[in-house]
Design a protein around this nucleic acid. Structure first.
Lengths: 331, 331
DNA sequence: CTTTTTTTTCGAAAGGATAAAATATAAGTA
DNA sequence: TACTTATATTTTATCCTTTCGAAAAAAAAG
C-alpha cells in the first residue's frame, strides 16, 4: 500500500539503514549513494512515517500545550509565541483547551504523556498539589507559561506580577486617588494573589488601610467588566481610579462607566493589565501593564528546548521584564 | 525503564493480547481477568504508549489543524470549535500557524501527513492549484473551514459570503447611502471575491455603477482600519456608509472616523463582518454580519469525523446560515 | 460423559522506522 | 605491498502495540 523505507531500500539497492541516513541528513553517505536514494525516494513518493520513527527513536518532535482557552486573546497570543519557537526548533504542538477545569487538566496532562510528547507547556490558574505531583513525575520536561505554582519547583516563565500591580496602583495613587478600586478575576490563582499583594503593598505604602469593598471580584469577560463598573458606581463616594486585573475587564469597565455618562479619564481613571491588542482598540486607549505574552510563550518554549536537549539551565524560574504603558485612560 | 504492556502481561500472568483487550475496553474478557489486569496496571503504573499503538493500529487519534494565525481573534474562535468537537470524539489536534505563506502551508500539510494524522482541517486564504493537488491526494480526509477552493472539490464548511455581503451592503443602501464604501482585505482569496461580488450585486440592484475608488484595500489589522478611515475621508464627497470586510477593520474604521471628529452612526454608518467578540467591545457597538466561527470549526471537525469513520456524507460543501446583527453603528 | 458451541486466552506476526554492532570498502602510511 | 585507519554500508535487534488465527477453557447440548 504505502511506500516504506523498505521499498526504497529494495528499489535503490541499498539497506534500510542507508536510506534512513539519507533521510535524516547523516553525512556518512557517499554522494553517489545519496543521489541514488534521493532519486528513488522521489520516484516512489516516499514519505517517512513519523510514528514509526517516534517509536524507534523515542522522540516525537512534538510538544504538548495545555491552555485554558485558545479563544481568549491573552492565551492565543501566548500560544503563538510557543508555536513560533516550536517551529523554529522543528517541533509541532498538540494543543488542548482545559477551561481551567481540574479534572480535564489532569486528564490532559496524562493524555500528553501517552502521546509521548517530548515536552509539555502548561498554562492554568490553580496549580493544586495533584497538579504539582503529576507534573513533577513527568517523564518529559515541563515548563509553565504565565502560570505560577507556589512551590516554585517547576520551571516557569512569568513577569513579576506583584511588582507590576504595585506600580500600576501606585500610578493611580500618585495621580490623586488615595484608594483605587481593584477589579480582579475571582479565580483563585497564585497570579491573582500576587496582583492583589502588589495592590495592597501600594496602598500600604500610601498609608491606606485596605477597604475590601473596593476589591471587586469579577469574571473573566468583558461583560463582567461592564458589570463591575456598575458595582463601582454603587459604592458611595467611589474612588476615581480603577486598577483592572486584565485588559478585557478594563474595557468593560471603561464602557460601563461611559454608558453611565462618566468620562475616562476625566471622571475616573482606568488602568489595565496585559497590554493585549485590545488596549489600543478602545477610546480612550488603555493605559496598562505590559505583559509580554508572546515572549512568555516563546521563552517558555525556548526553555523547554533546552531541557529537552539536556542543556544546563541557569535559572529555572524566568522572570521577564514588564513595563507600564501610559495611554489615555489615565491622566 | 518504562512499564510496557509486556511487563503488565508478565506480572498479571496473562498474554499481551489480553492486556491490550482490557486497556481498550474489549468486552471479550472474563471479569476476573479484567480485574486482575487492571490491578496490575494500577500497581505498575502502566501508561499505554500511543505512538506504538498508532504504529500498530494505523490510527493516531490526532488531526492536523493548519491555521493562518492563532492569535487572530477570528481564527482562535474557529480553533476552539474544532478542538471542542475533536475532544468530544477523542481526538487531539496538532495545530500549526501558516501565516498564509504558501511555502509554509504546503510544507505543513506534508508534515501533517508525515505525522500520520487521521484527518486534516485546513484554513487559508488562497487555495492554489498546488494546494488542491496536495489536499486531493491526501492519504486522509480533509475539510476546509471558513475557506473556499474555487474548484469546490474539497469538503468545506462556510457561510454564503456573497449573500451575506449583499445583505450588509443593501442595509446601508436602504439607510440612504447610494454607494457605500467597501473596505476589504487586500488578500486575494475566494472568500474576498465573494464578498466583493455581494457588494457589487447590491450596488447593481440599486442601479449604481461601481466606483472602484470606493473599494479600499486594507491590511488585516485594526491599524489598517484606522488608516482606511483616513482614506475614506479623503474621498471627495465621501459616502456616509462603510461596509468593512471584518470586525477588526471596522473597529479601526470607527475609531479613525471618531478621532477625526466624525460621529458613528450619525455622520457615517459602519457595518462589519464576522461578529467577533470585538463587535460588542466598541462604542457604538458594531452592527455586523454574524459568521458563526465557532460553529464553522465545530461542523468542520464533525464533518471530518464522519469521513474518518467512513460514514456517508450527503453534502460535502456545507453552508451554514448567517445573519445580520444590527447594533448601534448603523441607523 | 461425550460432543458441540461459545467464550477466553495465547502466540506470533506485523507495523515502519532507528541504533548499535559488524562488515566491507576506500584511503593513508610505512 | 602489506597494514592501519577512516569511511560507507549492512545486519540484526529493538521500540510497544494491535491483530488475527489457533488453542484452551468453559458452557451448552445431546
Amino acid at each position: 500500500m504505502n511506500v516504506t523505507i523498505y521499498d526504497v531500500a529494495r528499489e535503490a539497492n541499498v539497506s534500510m539503514a542507508t536510506v534512513s541516513r539519507v533521510v535524516n541528513g547523516n553525512p556518512n553517505v557517499k554522494p553517489a549513494t545519496r543521489k541514488k536514494v534521493l532519486n528513488t525516494i522521489e520516484r516512489l513518493g516516499y514519505r517517512p512515517n513519523a510514528v514509526a520513527r517516534g517509536l524507534a527513536s523515542k522522540k516525537t518532535t512534538t510538544v504538548g500545550v495545555i491552555i485554558p482557552d485558545i479563544s481568549n486573546i491573552f492565551f492565543s497570543e501566548l500560544a503563538r509565541g510557543i508555536d513560533d519557537i516550536a517551529t523554529m526548533y522543528k517541533y509541532n504542538i498538540i494543543l488542548s483547551n482545559s477551561d481551567q477545569n481540574k479534572e480535564k487538566e489532569l486528564r490532559l496532562i496524562n493524555t500528553m504523556y501517552e502521546k509521548q510528547v517530548d515536552g509539555l507547556i502548561y498554562m492554568g490558574a490553580e496549580i493544586s498539589e495533584e497538579h504539582v505531583q503529576q507534573l513533577k513525575t513527568s517523564p518529559v520536561p515541563v515548563a509553565l507559561a504565565a502560570t505560577i505554582d507556589s512551590s516554585e519547583t517547576i520551571p516557569s516563565v512569568n513577569i513579576d506580577y506583584e511588582q507590576a500591580a504595585y506600580e500600576a496602583t501606585s500610578i493611580l495613587i500618585e495621580n490623586g486617588t488615595k484608594h483605587p478600586v481593584f477589579v480582579t478575576e475571582e479565580t483563585n490563582s497564585a497570579v491573582n494573589e500576587r496582583k492583589y499583594a502588589g495592590y495592597a503593598k501600594a496602598l500600604k505604602e500610601a498609608n491606606q488601610e485596605i477597604n475590601e469593598d473596593f476589591v471587586i471580584k469579577a469574571g473573566l469577560s468583558y461583560e463582567s467588566g461592564v458589570e463591575a463598573a456598575k458595582q463601582v458606581m454603587e459604592l458611595k463616594d467611589f474612588p476615581k481610579a480603577i486598577f483592572s486585573a486584565s485588559d478585557e475587564l478594563a474595557l468593560g469597565v471603561i464602557h460601563g462607566l461611559q454608558d453611565n455618562g462618566l468620562r475616562v479619564p476625566e471622571d475616573v481613571e482606568v488602568i489595565g493589565f496585559d497590554n493585549t491588542k485590545l488596549s489600543t482598540m478602545v477610546r480612550p486607549t488603555l493605559s496598562t501593564v505590559v505583559q509580554p505574552m508572546y515572549d512568555i510563550g516563546a521563552v517558555a518554549m525556548r526553555l523547554l528546548t533546552k531541557f529537552m536537549n539536556k542543556e544546563t539551565v541557569e535559572e529555572q524560574n524566568v522572570i521577564l521584564p514588564h513595563q507600564i504603558m501610559k495611554r489615555n485612560s489615565t491622566k
